[in-house]
Simulated scan of single mutants.
Amino acid sequence: MDVQEGSGPGDGVLDFSRLGLNSLSVDSVGEERRNETKQLYLNNNRLASLSPSICLFSNLEFLDISNNQLSVICEDVTRLVKLKTLIAKNNRLDEFSLPKEFGAMPLEVLNFSGNRFEEIPLQCTKLHRLQSLSLGGNRLKSVPPEIENLTSLELLYLGGNFISAIPPELANLPYLSYLVLCDNRIQSVPPQLTRLNSLRSLSLHNNLLTYLPREILSLVQLQELSLRGNPLVVRFVKEMTYDPPSLLELAGRTIKSRNVPYQPCDLPSNLLHYLDLASKCPNPKCAGVYFDSCVRHIKFVDFCGKYRLPLMHYLCSPECTSPCSSNPQSDAESEDESSVPADRLQRVLLG
């Protein structure tokens, strides 16, 4: 079925949604009308492919091709040099469906939810103007480190996949405000996420989390944290594995904890870099540091004065246990530097 020229709900809009179309005859739309069109709706049809002549909509800024049967996006889409929003939900797209030059497009909003992606295409990580990326309800197993290239990103929706780990590179997105990772298989949250200074909402419900990193309390803009459906709402046995520090680490600990002076000219570059990786023990009564070898302890802290959640602490030795007591009474009476002001974190969703 070919499209005949239709009228939109307003100037610059062509709406051909829900017409049962098998193909789009762009030639049937007058040239003047094509040049005026800024929004084109082709959603809820039976399109198996896009016509190469889609590029004739030279001023197109918004394209909705959701709920079709598309398995590939034609190369000609990349000639839409003004396209800012592409909605392609609920098709048959995967990581091999995108044109090679897709990453050069000026897209700001991209929605590929409800498709068949097993990986995030690297073309998507080259969309430097992208502010919103949705890939929910796909088959993703991981998030590539190249996600850090999307430095304009404000919303990242990856719910409903098979993701098992959050890459620390996500922490390099300075404007990320909404991060949705619900309904995955995530077992831990990297402490690097504390660098997401713009994050307002973090959705982690229905994962496999048993603890949170204590650094999550440094997310000063965070207003909503969704955690329901995770094992962390139930008390569990603490993991007490500990590998003794190497001779290299023992030397590094001595230099850092005792403030032994050194100059860049005194040490090889690899040792200088190693010394820069020192982490301070969170126990306020301990002046120690650690590098690779540390003890993992759990401490339950109050969120908003109502919820007690387990936060992970990394300590320099098994003897340094005072900030991570497993005794609830001790926790309550200790000086808790990790409590969250109730007026900041507005919602903690556990059930």
Rank of each mutant, 00 (worst) to 15 (best):
I65D: 00
D94L: 01
S53I: 00
V29E: 04
N43L: 04
D76R: 13
N68M: 12
L47N: 10
S66W: 11
L83N: 05
E75G: 05
F16T: 05
F16H: 13
V81G: 03
R79G: 07
V13A: 00
L60E: 03
R33E: 13
L60T: 04
G20P: 11
G103K: 04
L83G: 05
L83M: 09
P52S: 01
R33L: 09
E101K: 14
S17F: 10
I65H: 01
F62K: 06
Q39K: 15
V72I: 10
N35L: 12
D76F: 02
F112T: 01
L19D: 07
L60M: 05
R34Y: 08
L56S: 11
R79D: 14
E31F: 08
K100V: 11
L47A: 07
I54N: 06
R116I: 00
F57P: 08
E101W: 04
R34W: 07
L14C: 00
P99H: 08
T37Q: 09
S66R: 11
E31G: 01
L21M: 01
L21P: 04
L56F: 06
S25Y: 02
E108M: 13
S28A: 11
L42D: 07
D15P: 12
R92Q: 13
F112S: 02
D27T: 09
L60Y: 07
K82F: 12
E61H: 13
S28Y: 00
E32M: 11
E31V: 09
N44S: 14
L24A: 05
G103D: 00
S23C: 11
S66A: 13
E95A: 03
S58N: 02
E61I: 10
S49N: 05
K89C: 06
V26Y: 05
V81I: 14
G12F: 07
L50A: 03
Q69P: 06
R34L: 08
E95W: 02
K82M: 12
L14W: 03
L83E: 04
S97P: 12
E108I: 00
N90Q: 11
L70I: 00
P52H: 01
P106G: 11
V77A: 02
L70P: 02
E36F: 10
L14N: 01
L24R: 06
F96V: 04
R79F: 13
D15F: 11
L50H: 07
L40D: 09
C55I: 01
Y41K: 10
E61M: 15
T78F: 08
C74R: 08
R18W: 14
L80E: 09
I73G: 05
I65K: 01
V26N: 02
N68D: 12
L50E: 07
E32S: 13
N59Y: 06
N111R: 10
L14V: 00
I54F: 06
Q39A: 15
L42R: 07
S97L: 06
C74M: 00
I54S: 02
I54Q: 07
P99L: 08
F102N: 09
R33H: 14
T78H: 10
K82H: 15
S28L: 06
L107I: 01
E75P: 10
G20K: 10
P106C: 09
P52Q: 02
L14A: 03
N90P: 02
E36L: 15
I54H: 06
L110T: 07
S51D: 13
N44C: 10
N67Y: 15
E95F: 03
D76C: 08
N22T: 11
V29F: 04
L63A: 05
V13L: 05
C74P: 04
R34P: 02
